[in-house]
């Protein structure tokens, strides 16, 4: 029972990440009709927002101490972080919490990147075929990767979890179980709550604001909304920016779980497309449901009891589900009729 609960928790944790990453992708497809293969690169750029933010917080002054020598005989460099020097304990707190605080940095940066990307490139491919969209956005992703690589190198750049959140939470004890029966990393629980919060915010924005209502109307019938005198293209541009923000903050908060490098986006690209296909292209609820469903399935498929019967099933389960969905219900679990159907 403990093992099942632990895997369920792991599945929810994974599912939260999958849903968050897929959300922006399906948002762009639902509004602009663009198959954006650069979405993984946006996730990667979000990761590097956290890296840059920490770098800025940890800029140091370097002084040479001629009294101390390194093992190779060079004078030792003494490094003092400027922020801590200026702000004392408050500065140390900022450095310690650099990852969650980097979300505040990532939001404007990713919004600008998203809008520039849409206005500068993507808008020229609205009326082109999906194959051309895939080619150009995939090419864009590679260009962005190489730019990041040229600045930051190819090695992963681990980002620390805030010291208060590094331990494992005794989740079992919250539900009256014996101590340490069911523990789970606190940061992963934070990420799950963060995912739910961002997903909830996107849904609330789309449902309860006038902007969101107009966008949803545009998704249903773009021409009619245009005839009403509403500049739907401008709103769709902002939606692309919001999708970039969602991918970016998902990436920034993920950095303590997986040290980012320039290729991290590609790792999530295929996965997020599978989630979107299973959920239904363009369906926001579908992306969320499919994200959690696939996360939980993958987690349970990794249980030793399962892999001992079907070795390797944990690595292919989500792709098997995608194949079955494409065969049985091409529009996905919650996709609109006609989408992905001949």
């Amino acid at each position: 029972m403990d093992a099942i609960l632990a895997q369920l928790l792991n599945g929810l944790d994974k599912g939260g990440a999958y849903a968050l990453i897929a959300l922006g992708l399906t948002l762009v497809f639902g509004t602009l009709g663009v198959v954006n293969f650069a979405h993984g690169a946006l996730f990667m750029l979000g990761c590097f927002c956290a890296v840059v933010f920490r770098y800025l917080l940890t800029i140091e002054t370097v002084t040479i101490d001629p009294e101390q020598l390194s093992p190779w005989g060079a004078p030792v460099e003494l490094r003092t972080p400027l922020v801590q020097d200026w702000l004392g304990d408050w500065g140390a707190f900022l450095v310690d919490y650099s990852v969650p605080l980097s979300v505040l940095f990532a939001v404007p940066v990713m919004l600008v990147i998203g809008i520039v990307m849409e206005r500068g490139l993507i808008k020229h491919f609205y009326k082109r075929s999906h194959a051309e969209q895939i080619l150009v956005t995939f090419g864009l992703a590679i260009v962005l990767q190489e730019i990041v690589k040229s600045f930051f190198g190819a090695n992963p750049m681990p980002q620390p979890i805030p010291s208060d959140l590094r331990s494992a939470a005794d989740v079992g004890a919250w539900f009256g179980m014996e101590a340490h029966t069911l523990t789970y990393p606190t940061w992963r629980l934070v990420y799950l709550l963060f995912s739910l919060g961002v997903i909830g915010a996107v849904f609330a924005f789309m449902r309860y604001t006038t902007f969101g209502m107009v966008v949803r109307a545009g998704m249903a019938d773009r021409e009619t909304v245009g005839v009403l005198g509403i500049d739907i293209d401008r709103r769709f541009t902002i939606i692309f920016g919001i999708a970039a923000v969602v991918a970016g903050v998902a990436g920034a908060m993920y950095t303590p779980l997986l040290a980012p490098n320039y290729q991290i986006g590609m790792d999530f690209l295929v996965l997020s497309f599978v989630v979107v296909v299973v959920g239904g292209m363009g369906s926001l609820p579908g992306a969320v449901v499919a994200g959690f469903l696939l996360g939980i399935l993958q987690s349970f498929a990794s249980m030793n009891e399962i892999t001992s019967i079907i070795p390797g099933i944990d690595q292919v389960i989500i792709y098997l589900v995608a194949i079955v969905i494409l065969l049985v219900r091409p529009r996905g679990l919650m996709g609109r009729s006609g989408v992905m159907e001949s």
Binding site: D2, A3, A6, Q7, L9, N10, D13, K14, L182, T183, P185, R188, L257, L258, I264, D267, Q298, S299, S302, M303, N304, D314
Partner: peptide, 14 residues
């Protein structure tokens, strides 16, 4: 592999 959580979770109850 990047995320090992699905392989680490079963260790706890093994």
């Amino acid at each position: 592999l990047g995320d090992y959580s699905q392989y680490l979770t079963p260790v706890l109850n093994s």
